[in-house]
Structures are given as structure tokens and as C-alpha cells.
Nucleic acid binder design. Structure first.
Length: 715
RNA sequence: GGCGCGAUAGCUCAGCCGGUUAGAGCGUGCGAUUCAUAAUCGCAAGGUCGGGAGUUCAAGUCUCCCUCGCGCUACCA
């Protein structure tokens, strides 16, 4: 058992609001886990913060005519506020723009630099000559090769969601000036991931590093191990840890060549966990180091599946390279949550925004939490629907849980004036756990104890949906307890037995008031008030009641005066749900309307002026495609043999997604004939076929009209 | 294309190292009940476990092939 826990939740990027996918993916599971640990009296620190650097933020600032600082301030405030409203109980919600973070990351970089963990490498990057700077991936736009969106970014197409690299883009242009960027060499520091491959492989698969057993790989999720091994098997490559950026943590200035270089987000962001912990320690008069450097600390990262390799391979490599830090004991990554059958999309506004939910469903924060937990994408992608949201609320939260609490309190007030009855524990009754089972007070308390242990075990193994189900079983058993014993009938003939039943039912409610806190913190608090019990302190409250129950002791005492009953959850009517569905439909329509509008950048900007000599260098000829076949293992390439008149050439062309081999055979084409040969997918391509391309990226054949011989020049 | 993860009742999902009639919650049907936000409790119906082949005395559970979804990743001169 570890002495202390450091729990992190992925740093959200400060360029947009929070949606339910984020919540279900990382923040809620982390919150449940942490709240449970606190209830068990564990030493735990829960850190998070806004990730505020990178080109996407500068891009957004430019678009909105403001500064990166203004953007991150806006979204940081918004995110922080949203987390608070939905009840994510961070110990600190920090931000990577704070000086303490810049210092921490620079120190880290220095250390790795001194330990010669980096190699310096010069690569070709796009450069905008008119403004004299290198272009971050986000600063390059062009036509998406997958969906033909003319405004795809260099790192990602927001229309089809494909991950891209700047060189993927068809007709790239600089976002700064609109000019065509050129490639230029630039020097960067690369982390020698290849040198870490061996120990990472062992650590991931056996849990051992440096001869120590650090974790149990069987406790890691399948898809996490699978993804890691997939990377390991492909061989790890050195990875750039710096970028040519303007908005970020500067490479320590004393390092030669540091000017203009910033730390890459994957060094910057995870170190944010460390700087957040430092700030928390400062704020609370504590020492941060044991949480990051002591073997008896369990470090756990909650993330979404898109972040797996960074948290399981790259960041551990960084931590190990530094030398003083511990490695994560688990990275329980969740898969993705879909909305009404479709992927969530920020740019398409296909999402449920948490801040909007908090406004429109005031006081119903727990309803969203409950739904998110129920639909948590723990093992595979899952699905949120508004209809399901409504059903879950009405059937489970209202009918089962809230109703149980209500009937217990109403009956207690009716029969005992709201005073917990003293009882004779030897009297038997009908147990609520199964039909025809005889119940006995002490034994029933032991059963409750067992249920709570079960619930805890489920949380600890990140089985949150199951744990939520276990919580609800207590409520169901409570309902059955009342149903089987029918106090409303038996109160007259057997009041002593009814006292036992009602006392026990109150124990159930009291137990729920504690056990529900990780899942439904607001409802738990409300319950405490209804029972007139002290608010929970997060210092072992659950451990305390476990200790009582295992002894057969009640957790709410006889003669205790209860508070007033109130409805824990309210029904959600159809209109409210319809409104939300309409909202999504509207977003969808707005989206379609936008797609129909012609793009302002329908025509690619003119390239720079060239001289006749430049043109004359090109040898362009006519040719006819003789044969065509798909290149094996390639999605885009066709291998063509082209009759050039004087010879037949093999040419590879990236048109497989536009034409079938049968379609192109026999077509006469224009060939750039003196282009340097290039080997692709193991075959040498001896030239390039020219096509016309429209704004959508569609290709059209270009050829002379009517029986022209092959091998003739084009000028 | 490669690799990884997934495909199980109407819906949302569990099913560990292969072993008796494949499970849960919700929904549906029938019955009971009325303290409670027309809530609750019981019983029941519902699946050739994505498709195909194979290994085995025995396969959602192992192997191979295929289809679909998601993620990561390569090729576009």
C-alpha cells in the first residue's frame, strides 16, 4: 500500500470551453478516485491546470484580434469556474503561464541537456520569408488531402479530424502573410527516445524498472498496453522537444542556439503537473518533493486515449532521464464519448458544453455526473444521448435513490417525529437483499460493510461504472427492505419490529450520504443536511463508518434528531430534453449552411514570380498510361507505367483515392519528365503526372486533345 | 496499408487463465402494493455472443481470414 497519492488529470488546452467528453474521459474518473481516497483518509494531492502555450492559442488570438494572454486568461478563468461548478475537487488548478512553471520546465530542460539526453538535429521546416519566421504547424493552412477541406491546419484538419503534418497539405500557405512558405533548415533538441526503448518495454510489460517492481501490468487497461506496445514494436525515434514558437516556455537562454526556441508542448504540459504540485505546496506550507520523488508515492495520470503514449512512454522517459522522479503506477486512460451517435466536435459545435449545462441545469450538476459515470468510456467508446440522460435521471436517480431517501424520512417523521428510534436488535424482519431472507440487525450492518468494501475495491481498480452500480444496489435493497416489511401495514400490529426496520433504513441512508460523495458530491451534502449530520470533512469519513459497521455499530445513532425531508432529485420533463436536442439540431444546421458557402480561399494564392529560365528548366512531355496497379501497403499510391515514346517509365502517383487503376489506363497525360527520381514504398518513381486540381482537391486529367504522339514537349 | 482496441438481449454495458441452462441495469409484459416525486417490490419474455473457417471432449472466451467502428502511424515529387 502506498503512503501517498499524486493524482493528475490531463491539462485542458486554454483555447476553448470544456465539454462532456473531457469530463467523462479524464476529470470525473480522477475526481471520483480522489474523493474516495480522501474519504478513506489517504494522503492525496489532486493537480490540474490550464495548458496555455502553443501556436493554436496565438492563431486564435490573431483571428480575434487580441493577444495570447487575453485568450488564455479568458479560458483559464472559464475552465476553472466550470470545474468548480461541476464539482471537480482539485487541490490546485494551476496554469502553465505562471513563472513557477516556466522555471520548473527550464530547470528540467537544463538537467536533461546537462545529462546529454538530447541530440541536436537540423530539420527542414516551413518558413515564411515575408515575415521572417518559422511557421508552427498551426500557422500553415492548405487543402486537406483526406477530405479536401481547403482550410486544414498543418497539424490537423478540423473538418474531418485527420491528424496531418504540414507536408501533407496540398498547396500550403502561411497564415501570417498568405504567401507560400519555403522549407528552411532549423536546429532542435531531440530526446533520445530510442535509447529509452528497452527499459520502457520492460517497465510497461512487467512493471519492473531498475530491478524494482513498480506496478502490476495486469492492472493496466488493455488498450493502454496495446497502444504502448504498438509504439515500442515500431521502434521509438528521437523526438523533438523544442519548437520555433513565439508563445511558450523559452529554452534556457544560456544554452547555445536557444534564441527563438520554445519547449514543445509535450515537455511543457506534463511538467505542468509538477509545477502545479510545487505551487500547491507553497500555498499550503507543504513539501512537494515526496509526491514526485518518493517510492512510496503512487503517481496516477487520468487522461483520454489520445494521450496514451505521451503519458506512458514519453513523459516517463523524461522523468527517468531526469533521474530523480518516480514513474506513474497506472495511467487509466479512457476511450471516447460520442454524442447522439456522432463524435464530439468542438469546431462543429457538436457537444454539450459543461458551462452551458451548469447554467441551464442549475442544481442538477450531479445528474450530469451520474450520467457521465454510467456512460464512462472505460473499455470502449460509449454514447451519450439526451433521451438516455432523461431516462437515467427519472428512473434511477428519482425513482430509486431520491424516492428511497424520501420515503424513509417521511415515514420517520410520521412515526417517530423525526427521531431515530432506539431498537431491540434481536428482533428479526425481512431482509431487503433477497426475497424470503430473514434479516437481523447486526448482520445487516455487516452486509452494508461488505457492500462498501466492494464499492471501494471497484473504485481502486478504476471500475467506476460498476462502483456506481454498487452504490445504487444499497438504495435498491433499501427500497426492498421497506417493501417486504411494509411498515405502513405492520406499524399497528408490530411497532417494535418496524422500529428495527426504520432504524436500519436510516442506516442505509446515512451510509449513502457518505458513499455517494465521490460520485454525487452535491447530493451527498444535501443528504447530510437532511439527516442533520455533520458535513463531510474528506478526512477518512468513510473509513470511520466502515470501522463502525464492521463492529455491528450503527452510523446514525438512536435518538438523533433528523432534518426535514426534501427531494434529492427532480423529474426532468420532455420539454427540457427537447430543447437540448433542438439545440444540437440547430448546431448541425448552422454547420451545414457554413459548408455550402463558398470558401473565401477557393483560389490558391499565386506563387512568387519566376523567370523564364526557371520555367525552361522543366522538361514536360506527353505520355500515355499503359498499365496501372495499386501499390501494396499504400492507400494513396498508384504505380503506373507510362509510354513516353522514346521509353517506358515507372511513375508513382498519389491518386489512388481519386481514380481506380482501370480508369487511368489508356489516358494520355502530361508528365514532368526531368524531375529527380524518388523512391517511395520501395519503388523508384521516374517523373510526375500533372493534374488539374479544384478547390475541393479533386483531380482532373490534363492532356492534349486528339491523337497526339507521346514524348512530345510541352511549352 | 501497418499496429492497437472494440463489435454480447430493444437500449447502455459486464463476462478473469476456454467447462454445467450466457449475465446486470434500464426499457417491455404480467402480478402484488400504496409510506413515497403515478414512485416501489416480485415474476416473466427477449441473444445461433459482427460473419466465416479451424484447434479442442468442450469456445463470446484460443488461432486464422473477412466486415464495420475508434485511435495511433506510413506513403502524396
Amino acid at each position: 500500500m502506498k503512503k501517498r497519492y499524486l493524482v493528475t488529470a490531463a491539462l485542458p488546452y486554454a483555447n476553448g470551453p470544456l465539454h462532456i467528453g473531457h469530463l467523462a474521459g479524464a476529470y470525473l474518473p480522477a475526481d471520483i478516485y480522489v474523493r474516495y481516497l480522501r474519504l478513506m483518509g489517504k494522503d492525496v494531492v489532486f493537480v490540474c491546470g490550464s495548458d496555455e502555450h502553443g501556436a493554436a492559442i496565438t492563431v486564435k488570438a490573431r483571428k480575434e484580434g487580441t493577444t495570447p494572454r487575453a485568450i488564455v486568461d479568458k479560458y483559464h478563468t472559464m475552465l476553472k469556474d466550470t470545474f468548480e461548478k461541476i464539482g471537480i475537487a482539485f487541490d490546485i488548478y494551476h496554469r502553465t503561464s505562471e513563472p513557477i512553471h516556466h522555471q520548473t520546465s527550464q530547470d528540467f530542460f537544463r538537467k536533461l541537456y546537462e545529462k546529454q539526453e538530447f541530440i541536436e538535429e537540423t530539420t527542414e521546416q516551413y518558413y515564411d520569408e515575408s515575415v521572417g519566421q518559422f511557421l508552427a504547424d498551426r500557422y500553415i493552412v492548405g487543402t486537406c488531402p483526406i477530405c479536401a477541406n481547403p482550410d486544414a491546419y498543418g497539424d490537423q484538419c478540423e473538418k474531418c479530424g485527420s491528424t496531418l503534418s504540414p507536408t501533407d497539405l496540398i498547396s500550403p500557405r502561411s497564415m501570417l502573410s498568405g504567401s507560400v512558405p519555403v522549407k528552411r533548415p532549423t536546429k532542435h533538441w531531440f530526446l533520445r527516445l530510442d535509447q529509452h526503448e528497452q527499459w520502457l518495454r520492460e517497465w510497461i510489460n512487467t512493471g519492473q524498472a531498475d530491478g524494482k517492481q513498480l506496478h502490476d501490468p495486469a492492472a493496466w487497461k488493455n488498450h493502454v498496453l496495446g497502444q504502448c506496445n504498438s509504439w515500442l514494436d515500431q521502434g521509438l525515434q528521437p523526438r523533438a522537444m523544442t519548437r520555433d514558437l513565439e508563445w511558450g516556455v523559452a529554452v534556457p537562454p544560456e544554452i547555445p542556439g536557444a534564441e527563438g526556441k520554445k519547449l514543445y508542448v509535450w515537455l511543457d504540459a506534463p511538467i505542468g503537473y509538477i509545477s502545479a504540485t510545487k505551487q500547491w505546496a507553497l500555498d499550503n506550507g507543504r513539501d512537494w518533493e515526496p509526491y514526485w520523488k518518493s517510492d512510496d508515492t503512487a503517481l496516477i495520470h487520468f487522461i483520454g486515449k489520445d494521450n496514451i503514449v505521451f503519458h506512458c512512454l514519453i513523459f516517463p522517459a523524461i522523468l527517468k532521464a531526469h533521474g530523480e522522479f518516480i514513474l506513474p503506477v497506472n495511467v487509466p486512460a479512457n476511450q471516447f464519448l460520442n454524442l447522439e451517435g456522432r463524435k464530439l466536435s468542438t469546431s462543429k459545435n457538436w457537444a454539450v458544453w459543461v458551462h452551458e449545462y451548469c447554467e441551464e441545469f442549475k442544481g442538477q450538476e450531479d445528474v450530469l455526473r451520474y450520467n457521465m459515470i454510467k456512460k464512462m468510456p472505460e473499455q470502449s467508446d460509449s454514447e451519450f444521448t439526451w433521451k438516455g440522460f432523461q431516462e437515467t435521471n427519472n428512473n434511477e436517480l428519482v425513482n430509486n435513490l431520491a424516492n428511497f431517501v424520501n420515503r424513509v424520512l417521511v415515514l420517520s417523521h410520521k412515526y417517530y417525529n423525526g427521531i431515530v428510534p432506539a431498537i431491540n436488535p434481536d428482533l428479526t424482519f425481512k431482509s431487503g437483499w433477497e426475497p424470503d431472507k430473514t434479516g437481523q440487525y447486526d448482520e445487516e450492518l455487516h452486509l452494508l460493510h461488505r457492500k462498501l468494501e466492494e464499492l471501494g475495491a471497484e473504485i481502486v481498480r478504476f471500475d467506476f461504472r460498476e462502483a456506481l452500480g454498487t452504490l445504487m444496489e444499497i438504495s435498491s435493497a433499501g427500497n426492498a427492505l421497506l417493501q417486504f416489511n411494509e411498515p405502513w401495514k405492520t406499524e399497528k400490529e408490530n411497532p417494535e419490529m418496524v422500529k428495527v426496520v426504520m432504524n436500519l433504513a436510516l442506516q442505509y441512508v446515512a451510509v449513502i450520504s457518505v458513499a455517494a460523495r465521490p460520485f454525487l458530491p452535491f447530493a451527498a451534502e444535501k443528504l447530510r443536511a437532511m439527516l442533520n449530520l455533520n458535513p463531510l470533512q474528506d478526512r477518512g469519513d468513510l473509513l470511520d463508518i466502515l470501522n463502525e459497521l464492521v463492529e455491528g455499530n450503527p452510523v446514525i445513532q438512536p435518538n438523533h434528531a433528523l432534518g426535514q425531508a426534501q427531494h434529492l432529485f427532480g423529474r426532468i420533463p420532455d420539454e427540457v430534453i427537447q430543447k437540448q436536442i433542438d439545440k444540437l439540431t440547430a448546431a448541425e444546421q448552422a454547420n451545414q449552411a457554413q459548408n455550402i458557402q463558398p470558401s473565401p480561399s477557393k483560389y490558391a494564392p499565386l506563387k512568387e514570380t519566376i523567370q523564364f529560365d526557371d520555367f525552361a528548366k522543366m522538361d514536360i512531355r506527353t505520355g500515355t498510361i499503359l498499365t496501372a496497379e495499386k501499390v501494396e501497403k499504400s492507400k494513396k499510391l498508384l504505380q503506373l507505367s507510362v509510354d513516353m515514346g522514346f521509353e517506358t517509365r515507372t511513375i508513382l502517383s498519389g491518386i489512388a483515392e481519386h481514380f481506380t487503376p482501370e480508369e487511368v489506363v489508356g489516358k494520355q497525360v502530361i508528365v514532368l519528365a526531368n524531375l529527380a527520381p524518388r523512391v517511395m514504398m520501395g519503388t523508384e518513381s521516374q517523373g510526375m503526372i500533372l493534374f488539374a486540381e479544384d478547390a475541393e482537391g479533386k483531380l482532373g486529367f490534363v492532356s492534349p486533345t486528339g491523337g497526339w504522339p507521346n514524348g512530345m514537349g510541352v511549352k
